[in-house]
Design a protein around this nucleic acid. Sequence first.
DNA 1: GCTGTTATTGTACAACCGTATAGCAGCGTG
DNA 2: CACGCTGCTATACGGTTGTACAATAACAGC
Lengths: 229, 229
Amino acid sequence: MVKEQQPPKFRRAPPTVRREALIEATLACLRKYGHEGLSVRRIGAEAGVSPGLITHHFPSVSALIAASYETLSMSLLHSIGRHAREADVSPRERLQRFYEAWFAPALIEPGLFNTWLVFWSMTSHDAGVRAVHDRTYAAYRAALESLLGQLHRSEGVPRFRLRPAAIALAALLDGLWIEASINPRTFRAAEAVALCEDWTSALCEGAFPSLLVAPRSLGRRRAGRGMRQ
Amino acid sequence: MVKEQQPPKFRRAPPTVRREALIEATLACLRKYGHEGLSVRRIGAEAGVSPGLITHHFPSVSALIAASYETLSMSLLHSIGRHAREADVSPRERLQRFYEAWFAPALIEPGLFNTWLVFWSMTSHDAGVRAVHDRTYAAYRAALESLLGQLHRSEGVPRFRLRPAAIALAALLDGLWIEASINPRTFRAAEAVALCEDWTSALCEGAFPSLLVAPRSLGRRRAGRGMRQ
DNA sequence: GCTGTTATTGTACAACCGTATAGCAGCGTG
DNA sequence: CACGCTGCTATACGGTTGTACAATAACAGC
């Protein structure tokens, strides 16, 4: 009987780290293969693990997707927000840095876009994924509201309603990000940033009538049509 | 030999109308089942036709998707544009009607959103679908440029660069449409229209610095950073 | 009414999917 | 060194998928 010193067939890991590794593998697969990437076999191969392990650690594959969604979106929001939170610059400049981080090359990438499409396409079927979206979008909007709120208290900036302002800015950012992801040749990153900066300028000048809060006297035309705060 | 008068097993159709019927069935399937809907068997069942017919009329399934993409997006653009093109109202009001059509209940529907997600997710893999996107997005932007161009020549509206303005407006519309499609409870249609109207107001007041063309003298801060027209 | 064209069907194929489950094996514990 | 817990593998199952291809039958032209 020859005593072959062969390496172990697999290594054990505590559930927490294995779960995290599976989430990371899932994100890698979605990035590389898009919709075709969310198969248990492909994810297992990416993580160097058998397909059965996934159903062992997650109740179903959609639960794994939901967890991956939460991980990625919080990671991105934190990473982008860090650029805006550093140093002591003016609120206006903080926003600009946020925009620049948003349209940085790392974010404008087909893989990331395809990953997001998979998440979005599951919101209608899976309640768990939809819950993650709602929580994530709320956090994203809260970050924007925070940045806009600082602007709020600057010299010469009229008061405006934060929530709809953040909704509009989020929409503008998303829309530009999508087109840039699908076809990077439509416009350059600097142009996208300039368009967002324009939006900020208009906000600071009070050029968005329905966002202004209680524009008593001084008849700006079309003084808002009652959006709820 | 009994002469049974049984109906024919199938009916022949000229390639053109069969192709169109298949496209219609594809759109119905995508609307109902999303990503799961683009299988030859499901589409065939929807059209009351055998699965093999699809590969007979289309070189591949992705060609069918591309054709469906083109059909739907042109149909939508035309349908929405019709509301804005009718009667003789002011350019400003034309834009508002466009916004209202954009956020009408028929457009804010999970089925339509999921259909769009399928199209988007194929742009990275399939060259044909990407070509359709580019053509479609250009037509969409051209429609916006036309509407904005009319605004352009109104009294008191400063000159601005059409192309980037249309890009920004398209992004705002898309972003709002997406969030409304995923979670209709985030905001109401009227709020989305108000946010777009705000954007128009700011544009007319010249509150978007980088969009202004040749703002000679009159030092507005941050006079654009050279976006190409 | 017969014939030829061809749109259409039906089936076979190989590959893939998610889930369930029985048993192997790493590794902490004694 | 042996034991046992349990993370993990491997396989089987019934289902799906897109494509290929031979056979069939609708229907127009003669």
